[in-house]
Design a binder for these strands. Structure first.
Lengths: 198, 198
DNA sequence: GGCGGGGTCAACCGATCGGTTGACCCCGGG
DNA sequence: CCCGGGGTCAACCGATCGGTTGACCCCGCC
């Protein structure tokens, strides 16, 4: 019983590499590849693979998390294979229905094992997932952060989000506390590093 | 005459994929792989490949640019294969002696062609390299930017770099102009996006 | 020898930020 | 039912930032 795989990665070279790698693995058959989230959703519906190997960073269009949300089901498992292990990414992916989460830095054997595990609905997580144990930002705080990264002042952020300047400051204070910084520039830097922003 | 290749990428899965992909290509032989810049330098000296396929982002240790600088020679060509095409990255890589610069988003055929071109010392550049035409920041301005991203105030930046606060402000003004922003938070955001900072 | 780029410094201004405290509302879970 | 988390708002303060203008020095290059 071979596992039928659909690849989703926006890098054609990586995709071709994975196809070549998995093609030589016993019990695994690549039945299609997609270069974008939309393409992956369409192909998954058409070829109904057992497992979709999904990258989270897909350049343009919907991201891997959204694609996972639209694809994941008991009959089509999604195994995330990506570069970063930010706990924000991990939790979002799992929340979107991903069966497993693997890093590209992992050994190929781990990948093979995770694919077979995912095909049977068994979870496969790379590393110790809870690493940073960083307090998660709320939706609103991410909104503020987004405007902050655009270089807006408090007044402009307030106008953009239809709230008062005082509220913006309150949120900023909480953001500083959660990110462990005390300036807006520092907040943007940490946010970019933890990949909290697009 | 087959081209002897050394792979350098910190992602084991990608490395294995490339090995499988290139192994099936005619006229190409993978003679080794490295997961870090240091390892690549050592292996390049030992196995003297015709071409080193080098990723720029290597996680820990020296980065791809530095590894390229230490490896590149008329007998050992370095072909950069990476994700981003920031012109800062491209110019740094070429300046370090890279023979070609290819994106992972490129089609595999392009990769094969670029490898053979590199083996003969011919350049192979992906896309139109000069895209942004963004004014380059000076060394000093990058220093300022680095401190800025740590969330430091002008006074602290001044102390950290042993200059006066006035000088910091002057530099900041020029940085704002070059990056097209007018706040420190915006400057950090643009800097992170253009990958001007580590 | 002159010119320009890079780096340094100064003084001034108004506007904004960062920090604090206290408060209200809504909602969902115990 | 009451409590806590999330979101909103207010007023106050001092400190800092952002913008401007003008200046000096050193170096490489034409």
């Amino acid at each position: 019983m071979t596992v039928r795989i659909l690849l989703c990665d926006d890098h054609a070279v990586v995709r071709a590499g994975l196809r070549a790698l998995l093609g030589s693995a016993p019990g695994i058959e690549v039945v299609g590849e997609a270069g974008s989230g939309e393409e992956a959703v369409a192909m998954a519906a058409k070829v109904t693979p057992d497992v979709v190997l999904m990258d989270l960073q897909l350049g343009s269009g919907i991201d891997g998390v959204e694609a996972t949300r639209r694809i994941a089901s008991p009959s089509v498992r999604v195994l995330v294979l990506t570069t970063y292990d930010t706990d924000a990414d991990v939790t979002r992916a799992i929340g979107a229905g991903a069966t497993g989460y693997l890093l590209k830095a992992e050994r190929p054997e781990e990948l093979f094992a995770a694919i077979h595990a995912a095909a049977e609905g068994r979870a496969a997580l790379s590393r110790a997932v809870p690493r940073h144990r960083a307090p998660a930002l709320t939706h609103r705080e991410l909104d503020i952060l987004g405007q902050l990264a655009r270089g807006l002042g408090n007044r402009e952020i307030a106008r953009a989000l239809f709230i008062s300047e005082a509220t913006v400051k309150t949120h900023l204070g909480r953001i500083y506390a959660k990110l462990g910084v005390d300036t807006r520039a520092g907040a943007v830097a940490v946010a970019k590093e933890r990949r909290l922003l697009p």
